[in-house]
Write a protein that binds this DNA or RNA. Structure first.
Lengths: 121, 121
DNA sequence: ATTATAGTTGAACAATTATTCAACTATTAG
DNA sequence: CTAATAGTTGAATAATTGTTCAACTATAAT
């Protein structure tokens, strides 16, 4: 049984089922796609951002309204909206002093529903 | 316009659209459900765990195989499998010295697909 | 012009977390 | 029994991250 070496990085154990490993390796999506996918879930992996997303799914809202709804400071909300913007999960429009945020994409709700299905099981 | 007070915790701004806030507040799911949902996504929000999940979706695998596939130590893999177990995302069976892990639930793949749809848009 | 409000931003702090390391258990082989 | 291997676990470390704070911009009102 062979010690596993990839480049000059060593793994601390032997392959037990080489055939399975090779087969799975061939079917795995490209590295960077898996990184993007985990980054996407990371954005949803915070209760404040989940609440914001859930609220915006119900109605377009401004920063102050979200701050009142979640009982947080404008700054905290604004920082999280920045993350959500970077992930293309929300969009905004400006009207005078007020900035209105809304979901940039309707199908996020479907992911929420699937997630709820899982945790309710 | 009234300053917002919930219990003895203060928000740093005024309500702008009180009607919207009230309406959304009534439609929001219970706090603890939103916490559970964000915890669920938090587990998927790590590239190592995403890779493990993707691999296990292809085939049942033991800890060493996963370690070789992802070029990581058994310990690192085992720790992450612990998180996945706690989140009820994987199950395992023991055969001699070897522990085989597999997905505890098929419909996680659907969430992955939805996630990929989003990041590819 | 001045004042007030909506929102953003960067730095700092505290909390969380992924990986490493070493020690450990359990099972198998000799 | 002893040695070797598969896997787990707790503590420590390093990196990441959510919130706070203070300073800032932009728009609106007097």
């Amino acid at each position: 049984m062979t010690k596993t070496v990839k480049g000059d990085i060593y793994c601390d154990c032997d392959v037990i089922h080489g055939d399975v490993v090779d087969c799975v390796k061939n079917k795995m999506p490209p590295e960077d796609e898996l990184y993007d996918l985990s980054d996407f879930f990371k954005v949803l992996g915070d209760s404040t951002r989940i609440k914001i997303m859930w609220a915006l799914d119900e109605s377009e809202m401004c920063v102050c309204d979200l701050a009142v709804l979640l009982n947080m400071t404008k700054s905290a909300i604004s920082h999280q909206l920045h993350s959500l913007r970077q992930a293309n999960l929300v969009k905004y429009r400006k009207e005078g002093k007020v900035v209105y945020y809304s979901l940039s994409d309707d199908h996020v709700k479907e992911i929420f529903e699937k997630g709820l299905e899982h945790i309710r099981e």
